[in-house]
Structures are given as C-alpha cells and as structure tokens.
Design a protein around this nucleic acid. Sequence first.
RNA 1: GGAGACGUGGCCGAGCCAGGUUGAAGGCGCUUCCCUGCUAAGGAAGUAACGUCGUAAGGCGUUCGUGGGUUCAAAUCCCACCGUCUCCGCCA
Length: 429
Amino acid sequence: MLDIKLIRTDPEAVKAAIARRGDDTSSIDEVVELDTRVRAIGTERDDIRAEVKQLSKQVGLLHKEGRGDDAAALQDQSRALGEREKALSDEADDLAATIRSLLLNVANMPAPEAPDGLTEDDNLELRVENFDPAGYADHQRVPHWEVAEALGILDVDRAVRMSGSMFVMYRGAGARLLRALIAYGLDRNRDAFEEVRPPTVVKTETMIGTGHLPKFADDAYHLERDDLWAIPTAEVPLTSMVAGEILDQAELPLRLMAHTSCFRREAGSAGRDTRGLLRVHEFDKVELYAFCTPDQAQEMHMEILGRAESAISDLGLAHRVLDLACGDISGAGARTFDIEVFAPGADRWLEVSSVSWCTDYQARRANIRYRPEGEKGTRFVHSLNGSGLAVPRVWAAIIETYRQADGSVRMPEVLLPYLGGMTEIPAPA
RNA sequence: GGAGACGUGGCCGAGCCAGGUUGAAGGCGCUUCCCUGCUAAGGAAGUAACGUCGUAAGGCGUUCGUGGGUUCAAAUCCCACCGUCUCCGCCA
C-alpha cells in the first residue's frame, strides 16, 4: 500500500512512478479527491464527538447534584448530536473503505533505478554465468521428464491419479535429491538467517495481510470447512510473523528463512508449461526474507540476490540474472532481480528466484514498524524476499545438466554431504 | 469435541459484578536531572500508538483482544468472533 501522505502532497510524482509500470493512474486522482472529503468529514465528526463528551460529563455531574430535569435537557441535546455524529461517522467509514480498496489495488512505485519497459522483453540481462549453448552434449539435451521417468525418480502418472494434473511425486533417489536440495538451501544461509518452519495453511486475514487476497483468490487453494488457505509462498507466514508489531532498531535487519511447501492453482496458466516440473501445483521452496531499515535495504537486496545466485552457481548450473523492467515487477516490489537457470534438456531458461525489494509497501499493509534510535515515534520497515532455492526447477536443471553419456546422472559436488554416499543416480538397467 | 476461567499501556497488575473529570491506580522497566570519589542506594520529573488541525506550543479525536449493539455517556452492560489457561475426551 502506498503512503497516503505522499499521494496527498505529491500526486504527480506518484502517478509518474505508477505510469512506468504501464498501470492506470486515474485511481490516484480519485484517492486525492476522496481523501480531501474524508478529512473534512472526519474533522466535523470529531468536533461533534468532543461536544457529546463534554455534555455527557455535565449530565453526570447534574445527576450527582440531583438536578435531573437539567440533565434531561442536555441528554436530548446530546442525543440529537449523536444522530449527526453517527451519520457523519458512517459516511467517513465508507469513504475510508473506498480509499483503502483503491489503494490496495495500486502497485508499489518502481525504484528510480528499475529499468524502463512494460514487458519481460524489456528486462535487462545483467550477467550470464557458466553458459555455453554449444557446450552441451547430446545426452544433456534430453528433457528431465523423459530422463526422470526412465530413472524411476519422478512418478507423474501416479501423482496425477491421486491428485490430478500438475502434481508430481518424487521417488527413490529423486526424493532424496529433493531433500538434499532443501537442506543445502537452508544450511548455506544458516550463518545469518533464522530458520523458521511456519504453518502451511493460514487464516483468511493472514492472506489479506500480505495482499494475496482478495486479488489472487483464484490462485490459492482454500479449505472451505475451516476457512483456511494453503500458502502460495513462505512469504505469507513470514510477513505475518511480525504483523502489527513495533520492532527495535537493534533487531534489524531481521533475517528469516523457511522451507515450506507452496501451493498454487495456476488458474491463469492452465495448459501452459505442463511437462514435468516446469509448473506444478505443489512445490518445495526455501525462502529468504528480511525486514530492515530504509538505509539497510539496498545492501540487503544485494545480499539476498548474492546468496540466491551463489546457491545456483555452486551447483554448477548455467544461469543468468535479470533486472526486471518496471512493467514486469510484481505488485509489492519496487525493484526485482530474477535468477533464471538454464535447463539444456528442456532447452529453456527457468525462473528459479525472484528477489524483490518491497520498500515499505508490505510493511504499511501489515503494519510492521520500528523505532528509529534517537528519534521519537515509529517508521515502517522495509521488507525484502527472494527464493533461496526453488526446488523443482533446480532439480530438473540438475538432472538434465548432469546427465552422463551412459544415461546415469552424476550428483553435484556441493550436495554430496547431503546425499549419504550417493554420488550418482545409476543408468536404467 | 465437552466444562470452566480469562484477555487492560514495554512488562506486572488494579478498575468491570453498583456505566459518569479513568488514557486508565500502584509497581517494575526505561529516559533526563539532583545527590555521590566510582558503583549501589536515595530524591525529582518524564515515559503509548495512530489520525487530524496548527509554523510551533498545543487542541481535538480514536484505541483497555477484534467486530457489532445498548446508552446522553462503555475498559465497565449485551451479542458474535479470535486467542490464552485449567480439567475431561481424543491423538502423531
């Protein structure tokens, strides 16, 4: 949610920033107008309330003195004021609700440094690492869904039978590799991030708090009987962890990480990327998350990007880093870097991490503040998030990249400590 | 799932059953000042957030788990919801 005060004082700057995303700016004008009205009404309402309070005190005193008749006259007066107060109050509440719902649908302002452009074609490729398109052998050019089925490490057919399309099941060495990736993703950030294992299903108000509802209701799984939602990312519970709290500056930056299952209905992408692990309804992810002061935000953004990227490069996978164009940044982000890994078998780049700096946009919505040292009052924190390791697509890229000429799949060096002696997945007999 | 108790400021804890200068006693903690060779002890003052008006000082309003209701007036009465604790049941 954007700062209403900024919109009030400099609506043109806000509109200019929003326009860089290609978003409609008319709601900003609407907010400015409604805001003026709600404040005028609020002032009048508060004056009446003050009057009612004064009158009520007098009524109390008069009753004490036994002057009931005088009190009755004041009560009538106060009752009449109360009716007006109620009307004004209702109107103010309606306007405030309208303003809020307008604001909830306005995305964050992109950072000035975010590249211009409205689509993914405008994303800036910052660097490409470890990638030589001509360097892959034929045996690496087989898509993981074929390799994995042949090796018996991915059982899509049976998963579909029990849960429907776009659900998968890892088996044997495949399940073990998945477990290793999760442990690897967590362990390499253990030096600075607190490991959290939050609930996987949350209440409606929690989903609203992070902005995943009501806008993305169609993308989330809902357990109707208990009115609970399956989280689409650990970002939801991690943000809610400190919602409504005032943090000490000394606690910042607060670094958190969590491995969870993530559930997505993918309602808008039915029929797209349905092969193998490209797009699934349930997947494992290690999420990195930080709350910090505005001064710490830039550095923290780079830190999370660095950690996510090194996790990929230490696995020996080809990857690239994109600086997303304004129009391609998701709603809460002010600036986002994507990491894409190259899957030689599927012959395409797969997004495995989206590292976003959300400025105070999420904090304002979830009401997360801190007390700046040496200042009185509070300020909203900045929040940042990024996938430390999104398992399925990394798993897929490993299976394709590390496939040997004999059909076996070698395991990346850095995962060996997590694989209990398994150095390869043997070729099918 | 059943029965009961309860939810007050950074924390502890009164007030609620008899609604009225109670934004809320008292204590702890914290900040500043005084005293003191240092520390401890002691004394004084201050110590919520948010909204809005104001250059400011400050004014007004909201907030006693959340949301409704009753009333001239609600921390106090009524209803719903959320949560905590105790006992019983069930359970990995």
